[in-house]
Amino acid sequence: MTTRLTTSAMIASFADPGQKTTSAPFGHALVRLADERPEIVGLSADLAKYTDMHIFRDAHPDRFFQLGMAEQLLLGAAAGMAEVGLVPFASTYSVFATRRAYDFLCLDIAEPNLNVNVVGALPGLTTGYGPSHQATEDLAILRGMPNLTVVDPCDSVEIEQCVPALAAHPGPTYLRLLRGNVPTVLDQYDYRFVLGKAAELRTGRDVVLISTGLMTMRALAAADRLAADHVDVAVLHVPTIKPLDTDAVLRAADTDRLVVTMENHTIRGGLGESVAATLAFAGKGRGILPIALPDEFLAAGALPTLHDRYGLSTDAVVDRVRGALGT
């Protein structure tokens, strides 16, 4: 496989060359929501610029709160605001929200079931900075937390749609944020985000790709590539990791097709294991092909190179499916 060194590790961009993108969709969506709802507030742990929260800060400076590099304080303050009727969106990097502030998220927010929306940037392998900033295990950490809803959006379209849906949800949420210039893909599919629901974006008789997050755009691209080989590929997008749309998963996976799960997360504790458990609990045990990050600390480097190395690129997905089909 050809190694690509076209971007620096400093640039957290996973968009393919020439791909349509939208700038800071989360920040702009939050501003639009706040224009309509005065109880919306934004918080950050000294990372407003790097979580697109600066868009909200500039539009509503009186409703923005900078807590400094203290994620425990960030989530504790957000909990207090929710207790008095505000609807906080608290942004930081995913690694800090999950590893550093887990107990505050669990006991201050989830246990009292408060409407706090935790926004985690750099989920999975969306930065080249290495293990200190790569939140490759955040889904595994959070799936076991009661009351918490977990959302992994595909692109800018879904981010813009899910922001008001998360604010309207009465309990706590965790959003895996794609920031900066975010690819725009789902506008081609007449897509509407519905919290807790999966969406079949294309049908196919040979293979079904069950994907979440940015891997859905790779699933769609891989399906187009495989069609040239006369392989008919369905794509089921699963934006809500918890609660999982088990009915949609069972309809998609309980067939004679090759079932492939795709996620920007370690193979442990994410979508792949959730799909496997759903099948097993329903008495539909069968083999699935998981495409995910390995159970190891990942290297630092340029994102295109890392996505090739760890199997998240479209080329890598196409190769894995072809290999499984023996084509």
Rank of each mutant, 00 (worst) to 15 (best):
F193S: 00
L166R: 00
E111H: 14
I109T: 03
D190S: 10
V207C: 02
A165R: 09
Q134H: 07
N147Y: 07
P146F: 08
L178T: 02
G120V: 11
P153G: 01
L186I: 06
C162A: 07
R176P: 09
T127G: 04
N117E: 08
Q188A: 14
G196F: 08
Q188C: 09
P164V: 07
L186N: 02
G180Q: 08
T92I: 07
S211A: 15
K197D: 11
N147G: 06
D224H: 10
T98A: 01
V233P: 03
F193A: 00
G171H: 11
Y93F: 15
V119S: 05
P123K: 02
V118S: 08
P131I: 11
A101M: 07
A221F: 13
S156Q: 05
L214Q: 14
H230M: 13
M145C: 15
T136Y: 03
D152T: 09
P123Q: 01
C106Y: 15
Q134R: 07
F104S: 15
V182K: 00
R143V: 15
Y174S: 03
L142M: 12
V207Q: 01
Y93R: 00
M215C: 13
P131R: 00
F193E: 13
V116S: 03
T136N: 11
L125D: 07
G120L: 09
L114C: 08
G171P: 12
C106D: 10
V119W: 04
A168G: 11
D206I: 05
D155W: 05
R202Q: 12
V185S: 09
A221L: 15
A222L: 12
V208N: 00
T184K: 11
A121S: 12
I159G: 02
R205I: 08
L201M: 06
N115I: 09
N147E: 12
P183M: 03
V233L: 12
G120T: 09
L186C: 04
V118A: 05
A140I: 12
V185F: 08
S91A: 15
Y189F: 13
M145G: 06
V207T: 01
A234K: 03
R176F: 13
V233A: 02
A199F: 04
P164E: 07
H230K: 15
V163K: 01
T216S: 12
H169F: 11
L175A: 02
L220T: 11
A227Y: 05
N181I: 07
Y93T: 00
V150Q: 10
R218W: 09
R205W: 05
P170E: 06
L142I: 10
T92W: 11
L166W: 03
P170F: 05
R225L: 15
R143K: 13
N115W: 07
D229K: 05
K197L: 10
V116M: 06
D155T: 04
I141C: 11
Y174L: 05
T92V: 08
L139H: 14
